[in-house]
Design a binder for these strands. Structure first.
Lengths: 232, 232
DNA sequence: TACACTTTGATTGTTGACAATTTATGACTG
DNA sequence: CAGTCATAAATTGTCAACAATCAAAGTGTA
């Protein structure tokens, strides 16, 4: 277990100049893909040993993880990996609906033609990947996030971009991972993405926002059902 | 200068059990009300001395200040107090418009009657404070934030609440402070608040959201003018 | 004089030890 | 036997010293 983390560290050592940052990345992916289960108690000395570093940088990593809400922390009492419940996910999807709706509006106003073209090509790729023999569930997920990421980028709004990327998408990724495979909604999602892209291309801010909000609240309805079915 | 901070610390020592947290609060208010000017270089050892603590907890405070975007930080190069420019404030007001619009919608759906009543009484107080001889600019500002805070609370959405309180309002407070006194827009704002409250009372989600968004984008237009006038 | 290089100084990143606090354990008492 | 208090273990919070890194001052050369 130590070896894999060492490998990961040396692998990331180019992109993250600081030890705390690299550890943050490591723990983050460990949480997102479930290697650190929800509700796990975090003991600083144990984790420091596991990742082969001292408590100082580990502490910094934990604090950053707390800020993006992957870890819950109580002074003097310790910290645990977050446990996703339905209410929290609803809050997150609602906030995302609001923020990404605005992002779509801004994208319709500001996105350069070249980027719109590239977005359209991305959707073509997705179309192709759906036609291929399935099993590309993972690819579809990342493709979905990719589309939403580009809209967020196009908003040219730093605050919205950072919060979607840094916090909301992470939690949604985690939720998806824990909930296992999702139903084959890929075609529906792609159609909606196309409509949104079309609205952006027509510079129809109002429509772009409305469609994005519908798209996300629709996604939430499905996630919600899955979460509720799991609680049986 | 040391004395005031010591006083502040002992004052907060009941609510914040940890030294890092208290220092975080101290530096935060120092930044917001301008005692630490924008763009000031932050030197850890200096600040640690100034606040009478070690670099460890100070570092934690700085990291949290970075997360709420009051401090900008570059690895190995140090950190500075943020400098508010027009673009950043526009991003923040836009994000706020989106989030608080959603909050108003949720408030219209979920706010209990008792809270709506209390909200109405709050607005009565504001009305009274406006009638009084002026000079209550400070009070009006805090009153304004109070109203928006209650709507955010009523949304029952933890994520939205935390982000409005923890980050956006802080930056807006800071911007207001730096921009000096604002024009006497109190009556206009109060009227708009009343309309929003009325929409919430009627459980008209759509209208509540629209009115809130107009209210905030209107506020931004005014702030924007002031900021642009300052750049002469 | 301008430019590249080296070296020095200052500042951040990291570490391990120490202090303060909480939680768990167990004895004592009603 | 239940409940409460005191003690002990484990864990977090804090500190001061050490190592790594960056920015600037200074030196030498074309």
């Amino acid at each position: 277990m130590t070896e894999q983390h060492l490998a990961q560290n040396t692998e990331n050592s180019l992109e993250s100049p600081t030890l705390a940052r690299r550890t943050f990345d490591s723990i983050k992916s460990d949480i997102i893909n479930g290697q650190l289960a929800q509700g796990t108690k975090i003991v600083e000395s144990d984790l420091a040993l596991k990742y082969g570093i001292s408590r100082g940088p580990l502490r910094e990593a934990i604090h950053r993880l707390e800020q993006i809400k992957l870890i819950v922390r109580i002074p003097h009492a310790g910290s645990r990996v977050i446990t996703l419940d339905t209410k929290m996910m609803e809050d997150i999807y609602t906030a995302r609906e609001s923020l990404e709706g605005m992002a779509a509006r801004l994208a319709a106003r500001l996105m350069p033609e070249a980027e719109i073209l590239a977005l359209s090509e991305l959707l073509d790729q997705h179309e192709a990947s759906i036609s291929e023999t399935e099993g590309k569930a993972y690819f579809q997920r990342e493709g979905d996030i990719d589309f939403h990421f580009r809209i967020a980028m196009a908003s040219r709004n730093q605050w919205i971009l950072e919060n979607l990327n840094g916090e909301l998408y992470q939690l949604i990724r985690m939720c998806r991972h824990q909930s296992g495979q999702f139903p084959a909604r890929a075609q529906t999602a792609l159609d909606q993405h196309r409509q949104i892209a079309a609205a952006v291309e027509r510079r129809d801010e109002e429509l772009a926002e409305i469609l994005m909000r519908r798209h996300i609240s629709g996604a939430w309805e499905i996630v919600k059902k899955i979460l509720e079915d799991q609680n049986d």
